[in-house]
Design a protein around this nucleic acid. Structure first.
Length: 824
RNA sequence: GCGAGAAUGGCGGAAUUGGCAGACGCGCUGGACUUAGGAUCCAGUGGGGCGACCCGUGUGGGUUCGAGUCCCACUUCUCGCACCA
């Protein structure tokens, strides 16, 4: 070549030039992607004018916390799956708003900062930049970066604090002493959802302890009923709603008033008031306030010891002891209101202080836990429900089946199902109790004794007590201190910052101190979807008219690990803001879909296992389009699947085939089979995307390009349809090819193709012939052939006849599908 | 223990008013092109049998002309919850 250049410049340059042209025709993802990304950005294709846009569609996806490790395949999988849905909606003519932001406050970020000894603010800024510039922008998602947000930005957390104040002012936030989960490694309080099997979610091997601290709580329990009832009305997967249902844990029963021997009254909750006559003892939680009162002098030591023991045990350890029930007798007695029976009072850690009233009536005959305890303690067991009304004696376990009430005074003979209601009504008339509903759900502890979060906007004044920071003083800025390392004192590092903590009381002007706890990072993410459309609005947390137009979000896609925590809190905060008149809807999203997870070699990707797939490297090697396509092809989006290094090449081949086929230029070849294949593909892809069945949509696209190639069809309509249908999956290549086909505007503005129903039906059909249910032949017949005619042809088939041994008893004809000959 | 889901070739997975099991892709086998092939293209590929055929969707029953699909019982696995009175 060099020689040719030197000898004959003209020829050689032409050759060289042609070589470059050939090269440029070959698919180079880096070139295509850089080019199209630039065009999208300069054209502002994905920047939405929130006021003007028509047919708004809010496509929300769970935002990431920007870790130092960078975006992982799981994030990519979720974002890409969500983007495909969004791009499809765009091609349906919607103005699709697809924002992305950063959940950058919180323990995740802070712990990492501590580990690498870098200030979290600095680290977060670096990580956010890396996520956005080097990773998210390469995925090919249509993010509207003009509406991005970062929860650590004072312009954002100003409003997080404002929301805290709204809850406070409306009696939904309060500070109280409470036993909480304490992680000695994080040196902070954890929410129940951050505790796994008694261990810290972040530090897998660190046991969570119980501590009693003054904490801020949001009264989510006030909303338990609505949070539960609304589940019936929202379009969410059953798997998620059932988790929420069980966590809310509604049970109906009765509150029954018992009496201590000294006349003091106390209440217990039961779901089985019909077994009241079977109460043979009572149990208080070790922490129950009446324990001291009922304990007799001789039992004092034993009771105190037991209380000590229980206090030391974490909640998990208490639960671990399920097999062996423990407890001690207090020496005290209560009186059963229904029959005046004198029943002993025990304390035991199988009764929890924070459910119901922290005290129970024990019916060992009909409750397995009470039965176990009674056996250990050698307590009396009285049957009050018996099948056919005949007592069964000790069965070796509690009897919880159906039966008639016995030994129950006026209710003898009542079936247990009716008994609950009848006894409850009777209790009310007697003044012994009332119907009651209890929830498992606990109030939301939002205090965190950490540095990296929005300071809770409260001031403590000796004179005025707890005073909210005036709204005009928001945000309460997180001081840029280097002293942010938690010390395990149970107080936030902020408490050591005298200068920051000291302030004046907004009410009396006297000296006061700031609240030093920061709020839970779940509060940041409980309202972010409301902020996206109103990003930039300084004077209010949201713009009402924009919110009305865009919210609730049309689709929300995220991980099901958030079924309980985030997804409950976001609903709760939305309901509260609705009740306070800020929103005209009370559920945050119209539809929610949970995606699956991507594993590697069957296991969750983790650094310790060394099976982490690096998305950047995959994109470098195969291109973002192939990466997108492959992730979606692994398996059903809602199930996820296992990442396989080998499998991705099939997707790269598909992308190249599409690229090459369109680049080859159109021709006029167009057999009818191709047209049919095109219509089938339009139908299939259009049906699969809305149900997130991306894997089967892609399979159909592969079938389609195979059909086109086999028939050498590059008819314009067939090619354009191919590009359009593939566009949500491989947006860069699709855009490039759309341009190649001579279009000036984006393929995403080109609309979604429609199919012709008549093209879906074949004129000739294959009818299979079975003899006694076994496949023995097939017929090619015209569509909708006369039944008798088909039957005749089937019976005449040589191979079929061979298999008919006896007389033909019956012939079943399913038109256009099958003939089954039943012969003896 | 309770709740939800799942089980289909060597692998990922398709297939629902019950009607050709294994679409699509990976891998594998053979071939073409090639100096070369870890590129590309073509053909084949559930198991057994030379064959006609036989067997085959976790196990065992059932309904049906016909079952991966429906019913009953069971096994295994995954996930979630777990003393909530």
């Amino acid at each position: 070549m060099g020689y040719a250049l030197w000898l004959d410049k003209g020829t050689a340059i032409t050759e060289l030039y042609q070589g470059i042209i050939t090269m440029s025709k070959a698919y180079d993802p880096a070139v295509v992607e850089a080019k199209q990304r630039k065009i999208w950005e300069s054209r502002g294709d994905y920047t939405i004018d929130m006021n003007k846009a028509d047919k708004p569609f809010y496509n929300l996806m769970m935002f990431p916390y920007p870790s130092a490790e960078g975006l992982h395949v799981g994030n990519c999988f979720a974002f890409i799956g969500s983007d495909i849905y969004g791009r499809y909606q765009k091609m349906q003519g919607h103005s699709v708003f697809e924002p992305m932001g950063f959940d950058a406050f919180g323990i995740h970020s802070e712990n990492f900062a501590l580990k690498v000894k870098k200030h979290p603010a600095k680290l977060t800024a670096e990580n956010v930049r890396n996520f956005r510039e080097n990773q998210l922008k390469r995925l090919g998602n249509m993010f509207d970066w003009s509406h991005s947000l970062d929860t650590t930005d004072p312009a954002y957390y100003k409003w997080t604090q404002w929301i805290f104040l709204q809850l406070y002012k409306n009696g939904l936030a309060e500070q109280r002493e409470s036993a909480v989960n304490w992680c000695p490694a994080c040196k902070t309080v954890l929410a129940d959802s951050q505790v796994e099997d008694g261990y810290c979610e972040r530090h897998g091997d660190v046991k969570v302890e119980q501590r009693t601290l003054k904490q801020w709580f949001f009264k989510i329990t006030n909303y338990a009923e609505r949070l539960l009832n609304n589940l019936e009305t929202i379009d969410w997967p059953e798997a998620v709603t059932s988790v929420q249902r069980s966590k809310i844990g509604r049970s109906t029963g009765a509150m029954v008033t018992f009496r201590l021997e000294d006349g003091e009254l106390f209440e217990i909750f039961t779901t089985r008031p019909d077994t009241l006559w079977g109460v043979t003892y009572m149990v208080f939680a070790p922490e129950h306030p009446l324990v001291e009162r009922v304990t007799t002098p001789s039992r004092k030591q034993a009771v105190a010891d037991y209380q000590d023991e229980a206090r030391k045990k974490s909640q998990f350890e208490r639960q671990e002891m399920i097999k062996e029930k423990t407890g001690v007798f207090t020496g005290g007695y209560a009186v059963n209101p229904v029959n005046g029976a004198r029943v002993p009072i025990y304390i035991a850690d199988y009764v929890l202080m924070d459910y119901g009233t922290g005290a129970i009536m024990a019916v060992p005959a009909h409750d397995s836990r009470d039965y176990e305890f009674a056996k250990v303690m050698n307590l009396e067991i009285t049957e009050v429900i018996a099948p056919d009304g005949v007592a069964q004696g000790d069965l070796g376990e509690a009897y919880s089946g159906p039966g008639l009430m016995i030994n129950s005074g006026p209710f003898n003979g009542t079936p247990e199902g009716e008994g609950v209601g009848k006894v409850t009504a009777w209790l009310e008339t007697q003044g012994f109790g009332r119907g009651s509903i209890n929830y498992r759900l606990r109030d939301w502890c939002v205090s965190r004794q950490r540095y990296w979060g929005p300071p809770i906007p409260i001031i403590h004044c000796d004179k005025c007590g707890t005073v909210p920071v005036p709204e005009e003083d928001l945000p309460v800025l997180l001081p840029e201190s280097d002293d942010y390392i938690p010390d395990g004192s149970g107080k936030s590092p902020l408490a050591r910052n005298e200068e920051w903590t000291r302030c004046t009381c907004p009410k009396c002007g006297g000296p006061a101190r700031r609240e030093t706890d920061v709020s839970d990072n779940f509060l940041d993410s409980a309202w972010y979807y409301l902020r996206y459309p109103s990003v930039g609005m300084d004077e209010r947390f949201i713009d009402p008219s924009i919110t009305k137009k865009w919210c609730p979000a049309d689709m929300y896609i995220g991980g099901k690990e958030h079924s309980f925590g985030h997804l409950l809190y976001i609903r709760f905060i939305t309901m509260v803001l609705h009740d306070l008149g800020y929103l005209d809807f009370e559920e945050p999203v119209k539809s929610f879909r949970a995606h699956g997870i991507i594993t590697k070699d069957g296991g969750k990707m983790s650094k310790s296992k060394g099976n982490v797939v690096n998305p950047d490297a995959i994109i470098d090697r195969y291109g973002a389009d192939t990466f997108r396509l492959y992730l979606m092809f692994i398996g059903p989006f809602m199930l996820g699947g296992d990442y396989d290094d080998q499998g991705i090449v099939g997707c790269r081949r598909f992308v190249e085939r599409v690229f090459d086929w369109v680049n080859k230029g159109e021709n006029k070849t167009r057999p009818e089979d191709c047209v049919r294949s095109m219509h089938r593909t339009i139908k299939k892809v259009g049906e699969d995307i809305p149900t997130l069945s991306y894997n089967t949509a892609i399979a159909q696209l592969m079938t389609y390009i195979n059909d086109l190639r086999a028939a050498d069809c590059r008819h314009r309509e067939c090619l354009e349809t191919l590009v359009k249908l593939a566009a949500p999956f491989i947006p860069f290549v699709a855009e490039e090819l759309w341009e190649k086909l001579g279009h000036k505007h984006s393929v995403f503005a080109a609309g979604w193709p429609s199919y012709d129903e008549s093209m879906l039906v074949e004129n000739t059909v294959t009818v299979v012939i079975q003899v006694n249910g076994k496949l023995r032949g097939e017929l090619q017949t015209p569509r909708d052939m006369d039944r008798a005619e088909v039957e005749k042809l089937a019976l005449a088939d040589e191979r079929v006849q061979k298999h008919i041994v006896g007389e033909v008893r019956k012939v079943i004809v399913i038109p256009n599908k099958l003939v089954n000959i039943v012969a003896k």
